[in-house]
């Protein structure tokens, strides 16, 4: 006997969780392949390409959180979700602020370094 003798309920749960992982893997694969393919063979303009890559990355991050780390909107998950959102807020403030400040400084003092 390799499987633990699972109750019907547990078997259900197992099926569900297995599907979660597979679905997550599939979505992540797609969201990885799109930007790589576009970057390798696509003929989008640079700006559009960046936007697409960024969007795919963001969605893929959400996919990972949802399907691999099992963070959902369910009530008993709120604490973890809040923590992620708070972290995201701090990241936006700190990293966004940093970019704003630094590029403002560049534009005034060393425009040559602007990419």
């Amino acid at each position: 006997m390799t499987k633990r003798t699972l109750s019907a309920e547990q078997e259900n749960e197992r099926q569900y969780e297995l599907r979660t992982y597979i679905l997550g893997y599939g979505l992540a694969l797609i969201l990885t392949l799109i930007p790589f393919a576009l970057a390798a063979w696509g003929s989008l303009s640079r700006m559009t390409l960046w936007w697409v890559i960024g969007a795919c990355a963001l969605v893929q991050i959400v996919v990972h959180f949802r399907f691999f780390l099992h963070v959902t909107l369910a009530k008993n998950k709120r604490e973890d979700l809040q923590l992620i959102l708070f972290t995201a807020l701090i990241l936006i403030i700190m990293v966004g602020g940093t970019l704003w400040i630094m590029f403002n400084l560049y534009s005034r003092m060393m425009p040559s370094i602007m990419p």
Binding site: N12, E13, Y16, L69, A74, N76
Partner: peptide, 13 residues
């Protein structure tokens, strides 16, 4: 389909 109740992030034992 019921989502399993969870007490912490990641897969719950």
């Amino acid at each position: 389909m019921t989502t399993p109740t969870s007490r912490y992030p990641g897969l719950n034992l």
